[in-house]
Amino acid sequence: MAIRDNDTDAKLIDRVKEGDDRAFVELVNKYKDLSLSLAHSIMKDRDKAEDVLQDAFVKVYEKAGSFKHQSAFSSWLYRIVVNTAYNALKKEKKYREMEHFNQETTNIGETTNTDTIREEDQKKYIVMAMERLRPDEALVLRLHYLCGHSITEIQEITGFGISKVKVDLHRGRGHMEEALEDLLGDQVKDLL
């Protein structure tokens, strides 16, 4: 997981502005997984999320000159990723479908009450549970718990109001717990 390091990021983005592509590669490698997780929260599909992320990083590269260090680089990057993902989602006209809580399940493999879930499968079940959440809820949850952003920072990144962020965090947690229980039953405790 990428650790937010504003000074290092600021130096790297300044080098990108000067045309240093190696600095850009460093930034990409540092933030690509967390950014993909955010895009996945919205797109609900890994391949589509990766396409969105490619577009987002192209924008970051082209717009690097306009970055004024008024916010952390990570916040600026996530804002571009989130906007690109929502625009892509609107283009696909899937937004309405995703508004409803998705009850469908996808089978990863059979789980039995006696087996404990392997680490690798745990991640798959958690990602699957995330896919069942509404895009806004999944996004806010990942920004808060995975990226470590505060409610105010989430507001800046997403453009949502403070109350919406709080509601999405609260509801998202509830829905996530329901989805995990639905998928794993009593084995949820194995995740801890």
């Binding site: 993909l36 958690i126 718990y145 995975l146 947690r173 995740l191 801890l192």
Partner: peptide, 13 residues
């Protein structure tokens, strides 16, 4: 506990 679970929700490129 919830944070511990969410930390495993990272998707790799």
């Amino acid at each position: 506990a919830f944070k511990k679970i969410l930390l495993k929700s990272e998707v790799k490129t």
